[in-house]
């Protein structure tokens, strides 16, 4: 960039006018959908009433944030959100890598492709249906209980959906079933990009399968792994609420309610749009901080980063 012959901006603009023109729509899109809405953050400092002009709104300073941090329930839902998303990160991240590694070792092409297709298909199934399947399977007369009973592991049916502390596990497991295949696609793609000569050389040197996996495949996809990890850390607080909402019930609610649901119940549903916005801001700030910190750590330790 900073070479001796620094051309004036205008000249660059004219010379690369088509490139600039081509990128313009995307910049405009980004601006309209990602930057303009930040204006809505002003709502968090008002007591917003719908249907009134901006000038007529009452300004309340940090009241909404104070109310938020004073609410016990907020900490409960924050715990659930972080708990479930960390579990999702742990499982939904390591399992696809392992799966991709193993699948890559399969020699039979047809078998490999069928497995890959079968495992990513659940990704396209709606959570409504997955939740229905899971709760039917885990009900008293469900298949899981029937298997457990016939194997004499338990004497009477287990009420899976009534165990508060199992809820995170159930959500994570169903998430794993749904997303493992899909998430492994990117790793499989990265593995294919590794130069086969490396493998050949290693084989000549007498390296076995696991050695090659460890010394060639894994280091080969390390950049992908790192970038994916940093990005998922940025998403930690925004895990959505579909699965928790659909799988939850009143008994496990203390472990099922997540931030997004809290925003709906205590923000939008009771007409406190400002309060909901305050939570949104908090959410975004936490995400940015997590992203920046993890990025810095990875930059320092592994020289890989996204920013």
């Amino acid at each position: 960039m900073g070479t001796e012959k620094r051309k004036p901006f205008l000249e660059v603009l004219i010379r690369q006018r088509y490139l600039f023109l081509m990128s313009f729509p995307f910049l405009a899109w980004l601006f309209v959908f990602s930057y303009v809405p930040i204006w809505g953050w002003t709502m968090a400092f008002q007591s917003f009433r719908p249907g009134k002009a901006f000038g007529e709104q009452k300004w309340v300073g940090f009241d909404n944030f104070i109310a938020l941090f004073a609410d016990e329930r907020f900490y409960m839902v924050l715990r659930n959100t972080l708990g479930m998303s960390l579990l999702a990160l742990l499982v939904g991240y390591t399992v696809p890598i392992i799966f991709a590694l193993i699948l890559n070792e399969v020699r039979h092409q047809l078998f490999k492709r069928s497995i890959q297709t079968i495992t990513y298909l659940p990704h396209f199934v709606s959570w409504v249906i997955v939740a229905g399947l899971v709760s039917k399977m885990l009900s008293i007369e469900g298949i899981i209980n029937e298997i457990l009973m016939s194997l004499h592991i338990v004497n009477e049916p287990v009420q899976f959906m009534q165990k508060e502390r199992w809820f995170w596990g159930i959500v994570t497991a169903s998430d794993m079933w749904k997303e493992t295949g899909w998430n492994s696609i990117i790793f499989l793609a990265a593995i294919i990009g590794i130069d086969p000569e490396l493998h050949e050389a290693a084989t000549v040197d007498g390296a076995g399968r696991f050695r090659r996996m460890w010394h060639i495949t894994l280091p080969g996809i390390r950049p992908t792994i790192m970038v994916m990890l940093i990005l998922s850390i940025g998403w930690l607080t925004s895990i959505g609420f579909e699965k928790q909402f659909l799988l939850g019930n009143p008994i496990v609610n203390d472990y099922a309610e997540v931030l997004d649901l809290y925003v709906l119940n205590y923000g939008i549903k009771v007409g406190r749009y400002s309060y909901g916005t305050a939570i949104g801001i908090f959410n975004s700030l936490v995400s940015i901080i997590l992203l920046v910190i993890s990025n810095a750590i990875f930059k320092r330790t592994t020289k890989e980063s996204v920013i």
């Binding site: 008994i251 609610n253 009771v270 007409g271």
Partner: peptide, 26 residues
């Protein structure tokens, strides 16, 4: 009415009922 303390309390009470009633019955 929306956006009042009473509306927030109603939501809180609903959450308490949803949690405690099943708990006490079971």
């Amino acid at each position: 009415p929306q956006n009042t303390d009473a509306a927030v309390i109603a939501q809180k009470c609903e959450d308490i009922v949803k949690k405690k009633v099943p708990q006490m019955i079971l």
